[in-house]
Design a protein around this nucleic acid. Structure first.
Length: 489
RNA sequence: GGCGACGUCGCCAAGUGGUAAGGCAAAGCUCUGCAAAAGCUUUAUUCAUCGGUUCAAAUCCGAUCGUCGCCUCCA
């Protein structure tokens, strides 16, 4: 089955055909580095990380470019507020972004260009647009003339007249059309600047992406991604600039991820209802966050809440518990003779294992349906659990469980979750949960030992009292043949 | 006002013409001194509402209600 991608340009799912067979060129709008990233940034970057990984998994040679916008009004404002150079701000938050992305297990893109490193290309592009009559300089600024690019607004499906009728922006009299946008901004006193044919200034917001993508990927490339909120004006303007300059189609497939919501409302800096990635990672494991983000389709809105994160955590634990139990059973050796009464479970496990990659690829081929892909993993988990529950170890069971584990590992590599050692993930969760307890581990161990002694003496009244006491503090006791373990509820 | 998206079990969430995936929660069972944990099993004749098209619709069309997004910086 061929890969199909939802293309914002046509509002339909289309079969994916790269410009050059076997190769994919892809550009994703990164962040403006003026503050720590929030969960919305995490979602966008995780979504396209999975696109990147899956394309590679599907056999493509992928060139993936993700930029840093490191010069911008917000960066300058913050620098002024702190009384430092703008580069101090941009470098600080580039580092912060890189750390966050690493914690979320993102693969490194092929190129991570910075706008400030492409000022030469940007100036050349602006000159080309002026030469073609698509742009005009005014008082040290340069504007793109939207009327000179006839298909303007083809991505967002609007028309210029309606836009202007509802425009909430102040009209700048120097613009030929109120919708014209800045390619180059003249520097005000005290602002950082680069020399240009129009005087001292800096790039406008949109032009950098055109300059960097065309330099690194060519004038036409395969995939351009970003959040839904970038459709207008950012991507619309990128198309206008790029196509007016090159005379060629800019991008084949436009992909846009949905928002992260808080109580059904968009999470954003301007609304102030956002959580940074760092804040969330203090409370949840990074793998849990990533798993949560992949549990919905990338174009759907996803509601961020403690409840939903806890659900995701429980789901991930279910998978890892199953994997850990399977490993434990395999490690226990072939001590238990085959009974044969679990033949159905074995057959099911074999069937699900063999079907997994096919199901996974079908889900991912359908516009990267990670939610469905994960559901298939859960299907296999149930089959594993059935076999493990039979506790009937022989060579066939070991081989089946090994194979199932290998198949999950292949998927884990694409999704960037489930690639921890099961026992390590589980103990990570335990450590995280026990870190904010009112009682320390040694004290718990002492009480557990006391209870074990009481149980041995068949003093169940006392042993139950200890259990209730620990329970009241949020500690759960797990009795088994091997002894008593505890964990945090 | 213009453009667009969405409304599927208590919660999360796939499914976009062929008769409702998966997870969480819940219930029953196994296990247990009893529990807990874990595992297994079960859980939507129905997809916001009302009409229409079709042999067949959650899926297509129309209307209504509700929620949200873009139109200003935003992933």
């Amino acid at each position: 089955m061929p890969l199909r991608i939802y293309n914002t340009l046509t509002s339909t799912k289309e079969e994916f055909k790269p410009g050059e067979p076997g190769k994919v060129s892809m550009y994703v709008c990164g962040v403006t580095v003026y503050d720590n990233c929030h969960i919305g940034h995490a979602r966008a970057n995780v979504a396209f990380d999975v696109v990147y990984r899956y394309l590679q998994h599907a056999g493509y040679e992928v060139t993936y470019v993700r930029n840093y916008t490191d010069i911008d009004d917000k960066i300058i404002n913050r620098a002024n507020k702190e009384g430092v150079e703008f580069s101090v701000i941009s470098e600080r938050y580039i580092k912060s972004f890189d750390e966050d992305m690493a914690r979320l297990n993102l693969a490194l893109p092929t190129h991570q260009p910075k706008a400030t490193e492409y000022v030469g290309e940007i100036i050349a592009l602006v000159q080309k647009l002026i030469a073609k009559g698509a742009a005009y300089p005014v008082d040290g600024d340069v504007y793109f003339s939207v009327e000179k690019y006839e298909p303007y607004l083809k991505l967002s499906g609007r028309n210029l007249d309606d836009m202007q009728a509802g425009a909430r922006v102040d009209v700048d009299e120097r613009k030929q059309n109120p919708m014209d946008f800045a390619l180059w901004k003249g520097a005000k006193p005290g602002e950082p600047f680069w020399e240009s044919p129009w005087g001292k200034g800096r790039p406008g917001w949109h032009i950098e992406c055109s300059a960097m993508s065309m330099k690194l990927l060519g004038e036409t490339f395969d995939i351009h991604g970003g959040g839904k909120d970038l459709v207008f004006p950012h991507h619309e303007n990128e198309i206008a600039q790029s196509e007016a300059a090159s005379g060629k189609p800019f991008v084949r497939y436009w992909m846009h991820n949905g928002f992260v919501n808080i109580n059904a409302e968009k999470m954003s800096k301007s609304l102030g209802n956002f959580f940074t990635i760092r804040e969330i990672l203090e409370r949840y494991d990074s793998e849990v966050l990533r798993f949560f983000l992949l549990s919905a389709h990338y174009r759907s809105p996803i509601d961020f809440s403690d409840h939903n994160l806890a659900d995701a955590e429980a789901g991930l634990e279910r998978i890892y518990s199953s994997l850990a139990a399977a490993r434990e059973l395999m490690a226990s050796g072939n001590a238990v003779p085959a009974g044969g009464h679990d033949a159905d479970a074995r057959a099911e496990l074999q069937e699900k294992t063999e079907a997994l990659q096919g199901h996974f690829c079908a889900a991912m081929d359908d516009d990267f349906n990670t939610a469905l892909a994960i559901a298939h993993v859960f299907d296999l988990v149930r089959a594993i659990n059935r076999v493990v529950a039979a506790k009937n170890v022989d060579a066939q069971v070991v081989s089946l469980l090994e194979k199932a584990g290998e198949e999950i590992a292949v998927i884990a590599k694409v999704l960037g979750v489930l690639d921890s050692v099961p026992a390590e993930f589980l103990s990570r969760m335990k450590a995280r949960k026990s870190s904010d307890l009112a009682i320390d581990a040694a004290e718990i161990d002492r009480l557990v030992a006391e209870r074990t002694a009481a149980r041995k003496a068949r003093d169940f009244k006392k042993s139950d009292e200890i259990r209730d006491q620990l329970h009241a503090m949020g500690i759960e006791l797990l009795d088994s043949a091997a002894g008593t373990e505890w964990r945090v509820k």
